[in-house]
Design a binder for these strands. Structure first.
Lengths: 122, 122
DNA sequence: ACTATATTCAACCTTAAGGTTGAATATGCC
DNA sequence: GGCATATTCAACCTTAAGGTTGAATATAGT
């Protein structure tokens, strides 16, 4: 039973929710307090506080306490592995297509002359 | 109430599950039938069938019917917008850091002269 | 000390996610 | 036709996700 990219599990989970992605978008412009973050949404402050905890667990945001205010800031590091995963899958798919292409080209090259040598140019 | 990247909603949801990511990894090497896909996992065939439907809804995989066999193939297109979102957030964060850096540098340049004029360059 | 503000904690509710099992459907093979 | 194989459909169960409300905690301001 294979397990995929186990460490960044929390990252994908955190990114699955539109509100949380929206929060990250906000924070990518600079840090903000919890109340500030919550203001644009129609949900309760507590709900946003929960979203923040999920993002924190995924280490996508960091918290700096200054008195009663908690300042949240964006940490893009975990996004790196997510982006890498995506890039890898796209690469694998493309290279598989290229291999197929090369195979077909080789067969095309082999048939016209009825000359059955292998294609050495690639 | 802002809504983030609403169209690719299904993409993020589909990617949130490790089994589904694992299925995508398998399919990035080439197409496979449902039973083949399900074999490595300890869960039931039906469970995998459900995961496949989720991936299909996100248009991350395509289905080609050949008799009783259904061949699934990877479609990397939706990954593009996900990757773009990640890239955008990282870019915004970096450029914000750069702006901050420039600001500090400007202040450094202003102070040594003990010249207390207001910073008009912002 | 008192009151207002910022944030979390705890208990609860509703719904959807992920899984199971058993039956239905469609195709392939003899 | 009859039987095996490939896949989905439908009904159900369990748990976690996302939300609410009300109280607790901590700090700020006067």
């Amino acid at each position: 039973m294979p397990r995929a990219s186990s460490l960044s599990q929390f990252t994908w989970l955190a990114l699955a929710n539109p509100t949380r992605r929206s929060i990250l978008e906000r924070l990518s412009h600079g840090e903000a307090r919890v109340t500030e973050l919550a203001r644009p949404y129609s949900m309760s402050l507590n709900a946003v506080s929960k979203h923040i905890r999920v993002l924190e667990r995924a280490r996508l945001i960091r918290r700096r306490r200054a008195g009663r205010d908690h300042f949240l800031s964006f940490n893009p590091d975990p996004l790196t592995s997510a982006a890498a995963w995506i890039a890898a899958q796209r690469f694998l798919w493309m290279s598989r297509l290229d291999a197929l292409d090369a195979l077909l080209q080789a067969e095309d090259a082999a048939t016209p002359k009825s000359n059955k040598r292998k294609d050495k140019s690639r």
